[in-house]
Amino acid sequence: MHNEHSDTHFQSRIDNGEHIESKDYMPEGYRKHLIRQISQHAHSEVIGMQPEGNWITRAPSLRAKQILLAKIQDEGGHGLYLYSAAETLGISRVELIENLQSGKAKYSSIFNYPALNWADIGAIGWLVDGAAIVNQVSLQRTSYGPYSRAMVRICKEESFHQRQGYEIMTKMMRGTKDQQAMAQDAMNRWWWPSLMMFGPHDTDSPHSSDAVKWKIKRETNDELRQKFIDKTIPQAELIGLIIPDNNFSLDEKTGHYKISPINWDEFYRVIAGHGPCNKQRVDHHIKFHEEGAWIREAAVAYKQKHVKKELETA
């Protein structure tokens, strides 16, 4: 083995702030960590299409329907960019999908909660995308080039997602009593799960240290969560939503909000598969993946029949 290929050389490249590209030397642990993290991220985007998709056909105005469709389409695109980034690490999309469907790969637990009323679409955009953006902005500086480039593109597209969600919440809070009740109900159900999206406390997070050393992750779970809390609570208060936490307070000295303890039992229960929608989400994915098989086969068969022609005309 060449000396410069050692893990020390790799670490010094990372420490110098260089980006790693797919053909560069990387320790096996780095590659594995990336595949796990990028694929989990990709699957989250794709599975995340389902709860919002649940309201497309019931969107209450043409404008709302367009926004929601375009937003979900973006999420599909994000899944696609991230699958491509994972593929540069030597894993195929076929394998990635197999791992999702077998349960070997995870996706963000937040999508195992149901979207029950129209305000949930607002809450998802505002809180769930809002939490995701905090994480994604930080990941633009991740050390793996293809992942970082995907995140840059994703962040650009994300900018309208949170705003459209907050706009829905605002409209509902300025609307009828029924609409206000729907908005508060959505707030009550999505607030805590959105805080859990950042993952366990740094002290309990199994993968954090390597990820920080390798600059895959640039900020810790707790740092990111705090950023989200600090910017979101004033937004809620501005439109009259009540934070479903009896004991949160603003620490005037630090400018940070302190919240009640998060219910980590719920977090681990949903991760373990016992959220309201875990089975439904994966079953949906499998169903339409399987129903698509004959279509993909047809496309391949057609190409094989016509490939000669195509090369000639290409």
């Binding site: 794709v46 299409m49 389902q50 998709g53 497309i56 056909t57 469709l69 979900i72 389409q73 599909g76 899944g79 696609l80 699958y83 949906h284 339409f288 129903e291 698509g292 098989a293 279509i295 993909r296």
Partner: peptide, 9 residues
């Protein structure tokens, strides 16, 4: 209605 139901992403 086909959103999230395509044969390939």
């Amino acid at each position: 209605e086909l959103c999230s139901r395509g044969p390939i992403l």
